[in-house]
Design a protein around this nucleic acid. Structure first.
Lengths: 218, 218
DNA sequence: GTTTGTGAAGGATTTCACAGCA
DNA sequence: TGCTGTGAAATCCTTCACAAAC
């Protein structure tokens, strides 16, 4: 009876957290950061929910997959919760990424200033076009596609960003998977699929528009 | 007994179609287009499903919200189904859009060649910076934010694309809603909310990366 | 034989509602 | 009192499985 009746700490379990929950965590991290900036120390699920347009119950349930971070009657400590969620998401470190496809879009992605402050560093770029290979874009040298595997291994790159034309995208994705990449951010207008354990997210503004027009028809 | 026992044609009903279903329709449109290009006339839910990595049942169920488009034993007519889905989504016309925020990202969006072929035309741009107002970017003249409402009304703009810094985004979104915009594509790194019937989609590459890192921790 | 369209079953996610703690 | 954490209920979404149609 000396053993605590508390359930095992979920934080250490590899427990199956629904994907939808994981996808909401960055939202919480972001809103917590904004509370932190305003110097607020404690926050309730009610306050988080009104900020995010979600029910407080959902926030509490989501957090409960990872541990018990709140105090009854008081809420959550902003700084502590933000720190903990960052740890859980693996945001307490820097991640190396590579870009494939150095066209117009690819160049915009390399120059995008939003990645670095969040710990995502594009350290390498690849392209098929021999006229581009060997050049440097924003300090990143462009290599041939055939170099993907050795470079990914040498630089410890875990994330691939795909910005090639639709016709080349699946090939490039297969190539990245083969190289041992763990996550892919795909900007090509195909709903790409990555085999095995590799995570993939598609960013497709045209598809976003195409579903919204459904609700637009006067 | 003269009345057909068939249920009312859902196509004409304002029936409540789940959002998840609407979001998948553009996927179907796209894959049907690729079958069409290859000259294939009929296609089964099985074939569509293997192409899209979805179960055939889900595709059939999704389509059944809008009507009965298939023939037993044969499948779907590629051309006819594509046409019908485009109609349902409102893609059988052109949509005018405006861009708010003509910084680096905004310029990339204006120059992005993927919108026009799908019927989305950026016809107007706005910015807060007086140094940018009055200039022309890729043939689009940049107006002051205060001009949003009159311009949106005059040009019949239904879609707003937001590419301003996070701090200004919610203000801009409110302004677009006030101007009578029906759908918003938000590139600012906030999880924005639009009041009332206005649809909004957030495009946030950093958040996409931040949830994928959860699965990356070795 | 093949494949659709769809009720019913099953699974996943969200919300409810309240015991328990500060 | 105020708010969390969480089983149970409710809702939403996907898959099954089969009659009907070709």
């Amino acid at each position: 009876m000396a053993i605590s009746p508390a359930r095992t700490n979920r934080t250490t379990d590899p427990m199956d957290v629904p994907d939808v929950v994981v996808e909401r965590l960055p939202l919480y991290v972001r809103v917590l950061a904004s509370f932190e900036e305003r110097g607020i120390e404690m926050v309730s699920s009610e306050q988080l929910g009104s900020q995010l347009h979600m029910t407080p119950a959902q926030i509490r349930k989501d957090l409960s997959y990872f541990g018990r971070f709140g105090k009854q009657g008081r809420g959550y400590n902003v700084k502590a919760l933000a720190l903990r969620l960052r740890e859980i998401l693996g945001l307490d470190r820097t991640w190396n990424a590579c870009l494939v496809g150095v066209g117009r879009l690819g160049r915009a992605i390399i120059s995008y200033p939003g990645f670095a402050p969040e710990g995502f560093k594009i350290v390498s770029a690849f392209d098929m076009n021999p006229a581009v290979v060997g050049t440097t874009v924003d300090g990143i040298s462009v290599d041939a596609i055939s170099e993907i595997k050795p470079v990914v291994e040498r630089l410890g790159i875990a994330i691939g960003i795909v910005a090639v034309p639709a016709t080349a995208a699946q090939q490039v994705i297969d190539c990245l998977v083969e190289a041992g990449i763990g996550a892919i951010l795909n900007y090509a207008p195909i709903s790409a699929h990555a085999p095995g354990k590799v995570k993939i997210k598609n960013i497709d503004p045209v598809m976003s528009l195409q579903s919204m027009t459904y609700y637009l028809k006067t």
